[in-house]
Amino acid sequence: MRICLYGSGSREIDKIYTNAGYELGCLIAQKSHTLVFGGGNNGMMGACARGVQDNNGKLIGIAPEWIKDYEQLCKNCSEFIYVKSMDERKNKFLEESDAFIIAPGGIGTLDEFFEIITLKKLERHNKEIIIFNIDGFYNKMFDMLDDMTQKGFLSNQYDLIKIADTADKIFEYLE
């Protein structure tokens, strides 16, 4: 299975997140899956990629070539696909992946998450979307989504996603 990870590329995040990301990467490789990701060498992306690498797994990085001006790219990918834009990158993630994990991240991660869940809602795909809610990172977002549902702006988003607080729980959903 090709598993896409959306998550932070920041060097500033707490070790609780990168440790969980590394553990996720280890499991991806040990279970013979492939990590599809934004190609970043730092943050959640980098930690997960290192877990995959340290367990002889396969990595597919996808990024616009100009992104290297903003973040360090992973040099040890099995394959690296360069695209022209962030939109093309998101389309390639959808094309190359069988499931999506949303790890803690910033604006870019939220953009990717909301696009992939919208596409699922609009029946453009039927792939698993799992939010990796490390240390309750996304609890406030869930509160906002619940409020939007109660006010009639959303239907039940929990029909479209699963929530896991450990890497093991993610694989209970995927396997």
Rank of each mutant, 00 (worst) to 15 (best):
K15C: 04
I16F: 01
Y17E: 04
Y17Q: 06
T18R: 08
N19C: 08
N19M: 11
N19T: 14
A20G: 03
Y22V: 07
E23W: 01
G25R: 08
C26Y: 04
I28S: 07
A29E: 08
Q30P: 02
Q30K: 15
K31N: 13
K31Q: 12
K31H: 07
S32Y: 12
S32G: 11
H33W: 10
V36Q: 05
F37G: 04
F37R: 02
F37I: 10
G38H: 06
G38R: 08
N41K: 15
N41E: 14
N41R: 15
N41Q: 13
G43R: 09
G43Q: 08
G43Y: 09
M44P: 03
M44G: 05
M45Y: 13
M45I: 06
M45C: 10
A47C: 05
C48W: 03
A49T: 10
A49G: 09
R50D: 14
G51N: 06
G51W: 05
V52M: 08
Q53D: 12
Q53H: 14
N55H: 14
N55S: 06
G57P: 11
G61S: 14
G61Q: 12
I62G: 11
E65C: 01
E65K: 15
E65F: 09
D69E: 15
D69G: 03
D69K: 15
E71H: 07
E71A: 12
L73H: 14
L73S: 07
E79N: 13
I81G: 11
Y82P: 03
Y82G: 08
M86Y: 00
M86L: 06
D87Q: 00
R89E: 00
R89K: 01
N91F: 00
N91T: 01
K92R: 12
K92S: 00
K92G: 00
K92N: 01
F93K: 01
L94P: 02
L94D: 10
E95N: 05
E95T: 12
E96Y: 13
E96S: 12
E96H: 10
E96P: 02
D98C: 02
D98Q: 04
A103D: 04
P104R: 01
G105D: 03
G105K: 01
G106C: 05
G106Y: 03
G106V: 06
G106E: 05
G106Q: 06
